[in-house]
Design a protein around this nucleic acid. Structure first.
Length: 888
RNA sequence: GGGCGCGUAGCUCAGUGGGAGAGCGCUGCCUUCACACGGCAGAGGCCAGAGGUUCGAUACCUCUCGCGCCCACCA
């Protein structure tokens, strides 16, 4: 037996065990290994990233799943890897360059990309190393990268195939543009935030000659069209004014023309259903180049489209000398000012509205007309939605399903080209005569140039569940582990990533990429606030691991991580779970010190077991069933609670105390039984707890079993099978009576200021006299009494005991002698059942044709049955009523 | 504007048609031979509010109030 230190020290235990597992190849799996395949692919973290608590939670859950399935004998693999993270990584490296006083344009494309690869080489392994500290049992020999050769080939294949199928196309459309990143963005890379903006109202004057031409009286005819906008600068690109066709106020204006106050042009007033007559004046200025709705209207009415900005959202010469060369926000000010000077400004009011921001750099996104590559999503989305409706992909929790389907049903085409350099370059080449070729092999012919753009980073990560296994090649890995088993991720990227994996996987492999999507919540601080640097409430998981250990960190995260709900976390809570690890450690130490070398094995015959043995085994069984069910339901807090409560409140606080009599006593046979049960229970607990706390359980298990490490490890030991024969409600109830009495004595002692060390006699009156008499010695030991004397059974008052001490006495309440609530429940169910049966019989008897025509003996039998049921029912009612009275 | 969720002890949260719970925090006692990263005991809650269903509601239904999240091209 190994000497274990008094306090559990994760820092000395964890790194050593991890090295041992890894060295023995326990994380590694091969396709032809035994067992039903089980696979998880890591949601690849950004290659430049470092571990934050969100990663810690996400990866802990994955590790829990893999560890449990591995113990259950499945051929389990967990594929680790990283994402090249296009814009995010490019931004990081650009910041580095800026610090060096240069930029990517000075460097040039090739040198820049080289620089990013260098950066990746230097820092790319960080997060995966940190995952090892967390205890992640990923198959490191299978590490992959979204931008490595195999994954790039998959990207190329998918792009070309979709192009050939007509699902990828190039088009000049209004897209989201980040003027800071100078690239297009997809819809979901835009974050909408409510901001207090301004609504500017101003007048477009009618063309004077036309007003005369309409023949309207000069006096009551409007001098112009009043419009309202949150973005006055866009008026520099207005090419129409729209009103609702049924709006009588403006009916006469339709077809007339207004004069642009700052440019030498005029445009028409048109009618379109889109306009909401209730808003503002009922007239809308139309800027086709800078607003999606306006652009759609321009297509309907064949309006002129004037793009007023360059790629950095600075106005170009087309707006005229007065406003050219201005940043959009400066232009906004100047336009309002100019409108005022011209006497056209009606007013400016504050207006709260939603504004899109770049999810990478928080710059206000500009709708921009530009030539980009798109994926037609509708056909893909329909298949994905169908798969979800058919249950081929299941969400845990289920509440994620509806938003997911809603999103799929309203999907727009996906803009996949990015005007950045770091990423998979679009495999399209443009020939000297303007022809386009999209192909799997690079074109190296004179006059042919490859498209400058790269793909949205999610284009490659959507392939992850099969690209990691070598797709499009038909590898053994692919056929064994694809489709994967469970995808673990926060609900925040269901649309970004999960949806696209489902769509593309079905499209190219005819299979959903995973059976279950397990959504966990976002890790927040202890008051539910989002962790952010500016709040100063960020918790670094590595600090936690170094201070409290990986086990404590994992357990603290899991115990709050109910599916789909956000996960509050505070450092003190991790400290609390470290105490739990320590409690387990010391329970283990006690066991080892008293097992006298006994290893876990078969249980002694039931006849030899003491009441506390049978109790702890029953509790173990119940806990085991709960834990298995909760594991299957991805309900980590319930798993955690069950194990925590069992280990601390039942195993340590009661069972270990109770067996001291036998273990320290002088009956070798009795001690031997106690040791057998002790070893058995501890072994079970360590196995069940291992996925949550792999290190402390492994360390104890090796000491307990004499396992030598390497392939002889708890990590690959069998997951225990439940043994329902050990569950025994009667024993539990009996032991609860003994516990209740001990607690009463403790309370009596505490309330009366009697020293814990003082020994005295108690006399007990109780309905469970026999039980208390039989186990008086146990109660006396646990309650530190000199004797327990059961003097009387009070059968007419169950649940009432009297403890006598010296001259005084105390009435105590032992309600748990009978579980009244449960019994009432049972009676209620029974009564309901009988009521249902009674109704049936009564129905027959009240049916005249039945009574008249059925043979007499049949009718008689039914009558007897009716009477019998009634009698039983009355009896049950009576018992229920009397219990209800006790239950006050 | 649409969808979803939540209001239970000071804090974070479980919970069930019939005794109101846990962890942390707080109070008192205790260095009892695994553990002071501990043990024993205690204080603390009209289970957001109103109505309904029921013998009985913290739980089921409706509404109100408060909070949060996601989605959305109304200037």
């Amino acid at each position: 037996m190994t000497e274990l230190p008094k306090a559990y020290d994760p820092a000395t235990v964890e790194p050593e065990l991890y090295k041992d597992w890894d060295g023995a190849g326990l994380f590694h799996a091969e396709p032809d290994d035994d067992g039903e395949p089980f696979s998880i692919v890591i949601p690849p973290p950004n290659v430049t990233g470092s571990l934050h608590v969100g990663h810690a939670l996400d990866n802990t859950i994955q590790d829990v799943l893999v560890r449990r399935e591995r113990m259950r004998g499945r051929n389990a693999v967990w594929i680790p890897g990283t994402d090249h993270a296009g814009i995010a990584t490019q931004n990081v490296v650009e910041r580095l360059l800026a610090a060096e006083g240069t930029d990517r344009h000075t460097l040039g494309r090739e040198a820049f990309i080289e620089r990013v690869w260098q950066f990746r080489a230097a820092s790319g392994g960080t997060i995966l190393t940190q995952l090892r500290e967390l205890g992640a049992s990923a198959d490191w020999r299978r590490e992959v990268f979204t931008f490595d050769e195999v994954r790039s080939r998959a990207v190329r294949e998918v792009f070309v195939a979709l192009y050939e199928q007509g699902l990828i196309y190039r088009g000049n459309r209004l897209i989201n543009w980040c003027p800071r990143c100078e690239t297009a963005l997809s819809d979901i890379e835009v974050e909408h935030k409510d901001v207090d903006g301004q609504l500017t109202r101003f007048i477009y004057p009618f063309v004077d000659g036309e007003r005369d031409a309409t023949g309207q009286a000069a006096g009551d005819a409007p001098v112009g069209m009043e419009v309202a906008t949150t973005r006055p600068e866009t008026m520099l690109g207005d090419t129409a004014i729209a009103v609702h066709p049924d709006d009588e106020r403006w009916a006469a204006a339709v077809g007339r023309h207004v004069r642009h106050p700052f440019q030498d042009r005029t445009f028409a007033v048109i009618a379109d259903d889109y306009v909401d007559p209730e808003f503002g004046s009922g007239a809308v200025k139309i800027t086709p180049a800078h607003d999606p709705n306006d652009h759609a209207m321009a297509e309907r009415h064949d309006l002129e489209i004037i793009d007023i900005f360059d790629e950095t959202a600075v106005t170009t010469d087309v707006v005229g000398e007065r406003f050219a060369g201005l940043d959009r926000f400066e232009a906004r000010k100047r336009v309002v000012q100019a409108l005022e000077e011209e006497g056209l400004l009606v007013g400016v009011e504050t207006h709260r509205h939603s504004v899109g921001h770049c999810s990478r750099c928080d710059t206000v996104v500009e709708p921009r007309l530009s030539l980009q590559w798109f994926v037609s999503m509708r056909p893909l989305a329909e298949r994905a939605a169908q798969a979800v409706r058919d249950g081929a992909v299941e969400f845990v929790p289920q509440s994620s399903t509806k938003p997911f389907l809603d999103w799929l049903d309203n999907l727009h085409d996906w803009c996949i080209s990015r005007q950045i350099w770091w990423g998979h370059r679009i495999p399209a080449w443009y020939g000297p005569d303007g022809e386009i070729r999209v192909c799997r092999e690079d074109i190296d012919e004179p006059g042919w140039l490859q498209d400058d753009d790269v793909l949205d980073t999610w284009f490659s990560s959507q392939l992850w569940p099969f690209s990691v296994f070598g797709w499009p090649d038909d590898t053994p890995e692919l056929s064994t582990w694809f489709p994967t088993s469970t995808l673990v991720t926060g609900y925040d990227i269901n649309t970004f990533w999960v949806s696209r994996m489902v769509m593309i996987s079905l499209w190219f492999t005819d299979k959903a990429p995973f059976k279950v999507v397990h959504n966990h919540g976002l890790v927040r601080d202890e008051h539910g606030k989002k962790m952010s640097k500016s709040f100063g409430n960020v918790i670094d998981p590595l600090d936690l691991i170094h201070t409290y250990g990986a086990d404590a960190t994992r357990f603290a995260l899991l115990r709050s991580a109910a599916p789909g709900t956000d996960v509050p976390l505070a450092e003190e809570w991790v400290e609390g779970t470290k105490r739990f690890a320590n409690k387990l450690w010391n329970a283990g130490r006690f066991a080892l010190a008293n097992l006298d070398g006994r290893r876990p094995g078969a249980l002694p015959a039931v006849a030899d077991l003491s009441i506390e043995d049978r109790w702890i085994l029953s509790r173990l069984e119940r806990m085991h069933a709960n834990v298995d069910a909760a594991y299957d339901a991805y309900d980590w807090p319930v798993v955690a609670r069950n194990l925590y409560h069992f280990v601390w409140d039942e195993f340590a606080d009661w069972y270990l105390e109770a067996i001291k009599i036998r273990v320290y006593g002088d009956d070798p046979a009795a001690a031997d039984v106690a040791r057998s049960v002790l070893a058995y229970v501890l072994d079970r607990v360590l196995r069940l707890l291992h996925p949550f706390m792999p290190f402390v359980t492994e360390a104890l298990w090796r000491a307990l079993t004499g396992a030598t490490g390497g392939t002889d490890s708890l990590m690959v030991a069998d997951w225990p099978a439940p043994d329902s024969r050990l569950a025994d409600a009667d024993i539990e109830r009996d032991f609860d009576v003994l516990k209740g009495l001990v607690t009463e004595v403790n309370r009596f002692r505490s309330l009366n200021g009697i020293a814990p060390s003082a020994r005295f006699d108690v006399k007990v009156t109780s309905a469970r006299a026999e039980l208390l008499t039989e186990h008086g010695g146990l109660v006396a030991t646990l309650a530190r009494l000199s004797s327990v004397d059961v003097v009387l059974a009070l059968e007419d008052a169950p649940g009432r005991s009297t403890i006598m001490f010296g001259g005084g006495q105390a009435q105590v309440d032992l309600r748990d002698l009978i579980d009244i609530g449960a019994e009432i429940d049972r009676l209620d169910r029974e009564i309901a059942r009988i009521d249902a049966e009674l109704a049936k019989v009564a129905g027959k008897l009240s049916n005249e044709s039945f009574v008249a025509r059925a043979p007499e003996d049949v009718v008689a039998r039914e009558r007897a049955r009716h009477a019998e049921l009634n009698a039983t029912r009355e009896e049950l009612e009576a018992r229920r009523t009397s219990l209800g009275a006790i239950d006050d």
